[in-house]
Nucleic acid binder design. Sequence first.
DNA 1: TTTTTTTCTTAACCTGGGTTAAGTGATTTC
DNA 2: GAAATCACTTAACCCAGGTTAAGAAAAAAA
Lengths: 199, 199
Amino acid sequence: MSIEPHIIDPKFTILFKDTFGLNEKEFNMLLSCFEVKYIRKKDFYVKPGTICRHKAYVNKGCLRTYVIDEKGHERILFFPMEDWWVADIDSYYSGHAATNYIQAIENCELLEISKEDFQMLENTIPRLKQWYIVKMTRRATGSARRMEELRTMTPQERYVSLIEKSPEIFDRIPLQDIASYLNIEPQSLSRLRRKLTKH
Amino acid sequence: MSIEPHIIDPKFTILFKDTFGLNEKEFNMLLSCFEVKYIRKKDFYVKPGTICRHKAYVNKGCLRTYVIDEKGHERILFFPMEDWWVADIDSYYSGHAATNYIQAIENCELLEISKEDFQMLENTIPRLKQWYIVKMTRRATGSARRMEELRTMTPQERYVSLIEKSPEIFDRIPLQDIASYLNIEPQSLSRLRRKLTKH
DNA sequence: TTTTTTTCTTAACCTGGGTTAAGTGATTTC
DNA sequence: GAAATCACTTAACCCAGGTTAAGAAAAAAA
C-alpha cells in the first residue's frame, strides 16, 4: 500500500490562503518552510531518546502520544488529530531527549518545520503567532483539566465525560487506546459500555 | 484550664539568638514585631472568608490545615507543627478571602506578625529571608510530592509511605485526621493497620 | 477466498476500600 | 464519680474495577 499522494491535502492551503489570507507568493514562501512527511499507521513520528528540533502540523490523520510509566504500562496522553501540532514539547524547548512516543493511529500527513523556520514565520506573520499561542493555551488548560479528572473522577465518570465532550474520538480511536487514555483496562471499558447502553 | 504561660516558649529565643546570632537589642526589636497568640485545642487560627494580613510562626503545638471539598468532606492538607509558618497562603498573597481552615490539634503558641513587619524584618535580617525561602521551597516540593502520591499510590501504599517518612505524626495526630490526610475512611485505616501489624 | 492477526467482548473470580452499624475504651465535662 | 462525648476498632456487606481466560468479530494479509 502506497500512501504518498502527489499533492498535499487541501486543508493546509485553505487554512493559510483563505483563513489567514496569504497571497500566492506568501503562501509559497510559507510552504517552502515545511517538509511533508507521510507516517504510515503504527509507525512513529517521535520516539524517546531522540531530540525534537522540529514540530509538525497534522494536516491529515490521527496519532497517539504516550509514555511508558514506572510499571511499564503505556499511558496515553492525547490523540493529536487534524489541526494539532505534534512534537515532544519538553524536548523541543529544552533540547533534552524526548520521553514521549508519538505514533500514527491512521496514515498521517504531517507538515514538518524546523524551530528556526517556525520562529522566522512567527515574526513574518504575526497572525500565525497569535493563532499558535491560542491553540497552545487551549491545549494546556485542557491537559490540566484532564489531570484533575484523573485525580478526582471514577473511571465511569471519566468515560461519560469523554463521550459528552469528545464523541468524535470514538469514531476514530480504537477502544483499547481510549481505555488507556481513561486509565481503565480495556475489559473494564467494555463492561462499562455494556452497562451504560442497556440503561 | 488556663493555657497562658507568662513567658513564651524558649524555642523562639534560641532560634533567633543562638542560631541566627542576634544580640539582645536586635532580638528585642525582632520580638517587638510579633504578637504572641495562644490558640486552644480545637479553636481556629484561620477560617474561610477572612483575609490573612498576618502569618504566624508555630513555636509550640500542632494544627491541621484543611478545606471542605465539593462533596462537603474535610480534606486535610497538612499538619503544621513547631517551626512551621501558618497562614492561608493564597489569601496572604492575593488579598482574597481565605479558603482554608487552620485549627489547633494541641494547645498552640503562635507568634504572629503582620505582612509589613515581616517584610521589614526580611530586609533587616537577610539570613531570615534566606531561611524562610528555603523553608517554603521545601514545603512546596513536599506538597507536590504528596499530590503525586494521592494520584498514583493506593491507600495502603500511602499509609506505609507516611509511616516510613513521618512516623512522628503518629505520636501527635489523631488517627482520624491522619486518615483524612491520606484520603481514606477512618475505618479503612483501622483495618489497614490491623492487617499490617499482624504481618 | 482462506488464514492470520488484531480488536473487542464476555464471563468468572478476586480484592480493596467505602458504607453502615455497633461496640469499646478514653477523655471531658459537669 | 457519673454522664456525655470523643476516638478508635470490629464486623458484615457491597460494589467497582482489576485479572485471567476464552471467545467472537472485524480487519489485514496472503
